[in-house]
Design a protein around this nucleic acid. Structure first.
Lengths: 338, 338
DNA sequence: TTCATTTATGAAAACGCTTTATAAGAACTT
DNA sequence: AAGTTCTTATAAAGCGTTTTCATAAATGAA
């Protein structure tokens, strides 16, 4: 018996029609107890498992979930994948990955094709792609299930999982001020992204609320890369040598700050405090270890997976399922009390 | 026209039978020129694309390629995924990811099920899972296509892509000696993995060839994590304070060495040189930037993808397609000339 | 011209499942 | 006793492809 058993084999062996076997597989109730048990025994014995393609052809389902992203942060992607899979594998779905180029002209079309070609049942979209209204609209129109992960509440709560970066940055601001910091510089992220805006605003507003002012020339826009962090840090530290603390929009750029400080003979955290965002691989390994903000990425991904599966299966997303998660501060060695 | 067009729609619109359309789709030669052009026009117009599931049901193909791994290095995984996808998307395949637990009892069964359930056409297996003879045998027996990525030539060349770590480590050894190093310590990887053995041997043999001896007490086995790197570095530097250079089996552990050196007031690279392996995200960002070894991971993955697709499609792997790639040394600031 | 090939097309079966009728009993009503 | 409902089962159609087997038309050889 090298060939994989089909539903017909099972039916024949159990002496029933395939319709009845189908009922058993799909957990229908109206099957006689004796019959059901006989069929289940045969299934056990033969190791039968329904063919996903055949089943899909019939139900127009593929049991595939797509993951769409254009994000260079491999660690983030990895955590998301694992989070999603922890749920998928429980529910019998597989995960198909689809990195893409957000900026490309045919980007939306490309994503739609991806879904169509393989009959993907639903997609999870990661930032910054998730901020594309264009894509979301296209999916909506084509009636494709989707859930977005984002840092901002920009969709129906059934279709999004958001991390409250603003609140986390507020915590960070309070923490810095509580340690006596008043001369603060910022290397923010690209302001074309809502997520970068949120972080910047959350940070500044709280500082202002605590009577700490951040002059505009102490705010520099970076590109979220290590190299960009280096450039911005140079500019900032030369322009405003009195700055005693810097918040960088991510750990990559914070690592750049560390590099520049080292070059310039500035000791961190004694002369300069530094904070990052992400709790990237770097954060704990760099010297001094970075104080940063950790988002529960895996958890968010798992929530997204539960939501998308609920959509697919038409079951209600349980009301208790949240859509908003709050990141938390990871305090290490890069911020010093003045 | 909200519904996706099927082959029947195309046939009807072109006024031919679906058999003929099928011929055109699949590039058969025996179709009249006029007919072919008419059909192609209709396909263009309607945006028809064959349904993968239906096609798969017929051909018992899924156009899915699986990626099996149990590797905590997110960067490595990410590079592999992108490398594989660069080929897959050209050829109309999608990538399904399957992280697993190598140590688990049901690991082999789990992988087989993964393939069976979704009719995965073939799998690419990453280290260290790729070292499992058990899994390879099971796949062979079930006639499942696979290609392994490894650091060691342990399979038919059609089924493997190997990175010649041994040669790279030999280069590193020569480089260190050329800078005058003789007091060298090693933090090697888990010796249960062939790949760790290869690196260690490649390094030591070359050193020996250059008349540099590494006493056994200067070789410590780590677990490839940052924390393990810290422990091993402490042990090594306390036990053998005269060591002036350390090779760590990966960048994570090398970062651990940097951390310990900093704690102990040892300046890198002035008092102690350090080398890593991987060219991890960390390598360039840490201070001082690590001299390390970079494997062309993306390229290897692309080769693996080409091979697996060739297997699936029964076409010959082009003879020019290599199976062996050589990593190369990335020289940065962590090794100093004595 | 006639027969043998090749070339171009189609009808219909098959792939393995779900689902829409439908039917046969059994178990209630009246 | 005859009608109604459940309950449990089946036959057969359908999902969108590919593929086997025919067949018709066009070409070439005799």
């Amino acid at each position: 018996m090298n060939k994989r058993p089909t539903i017909n084999d099972v039916a024949a062996l159990a002496g029933v029609s395939k319709r009845t076997v189908s009922r058993v597989i799909n957990g229908a109730t109206n099957v006689g107890k004796a019959t059901r048990e006989r069929i289940e025994a045969v299934i056990q014995e033969t190791g039968f498992a329904p063919d996903k393609q055949a089943r899909g052809l019939s139900t127009s389902r593929s049991y595939l979930i797509g993951l769409i992203y254009d994000n260079p942060d491999a660690l983030y992607i990895d955590q998301v994948q694992r989070g999603v899979l922890s749920i998928c594998s429980q529910k019998g779905y597989e995960l198909v990955v689809h990195p893409c180029r957000y900026q490309a002209e045919e980007f939306v079309e490309d994503c739609i094709n991806f879904v169509r070609r393989s009959n993907i049942d639903g997609v999870i979209i990661l930032p910054p792609v998730s901020e594309s209204k264009h894509l979301a609209d296209a999916l909506q129109e084509k009636e494709i299930n989707y859930v977005r992960m984002a840092s901002l509440d920009l969709d129906d709560h059934q279709n999004i999982v958001v991390s409250d970066d603003r609140a986390a940055l507020s915590d960070l601001a309070r923490y810095m001020v509580s340690l006596g910091h008043k001369d603060i510089g910022i290397i923010c992220g690209p302001q074309q992204y809502y997520s970068s805006q949120e972080r910047l605003e959350g940070f500044i507003e709280t500082l202002n609320g605590l009577n700490v002012d951040v002059p505009n020339n102490r705010i520099i826009e970076g590109k979220n890369t290590f190299e960009s962090g280096i450039e911005c840090a140079r500019q900032l530290l030369i322009q405003s040598p009195r700055v005693r603390a810097i918040f960088a929009n991510n750990d990559e750029m914070a690592a750049g700050v560390l590099k520049v400080a080292h070059e310039m003979g500035i000791t961190v955290p004694d002369d300069l405090s530094v904070a990052g965002f992400d709790d990237n691989l770097l954060a704990a390994r760099v010297i001094p270890a970075l104080t940063t903000v950790q988002r529960p990425v895996g958890d968010m991904a798992a929530i997204a997976a539960r939501k998308i599966i609920a959509h697919i299966e038409g079951s209600e997303v349980s009301e208790t399922e949240t859509y908003l998660v709050k990141p938390h501060l990871i305090i290490r060695d890069s911020i010093k009390k003045l």
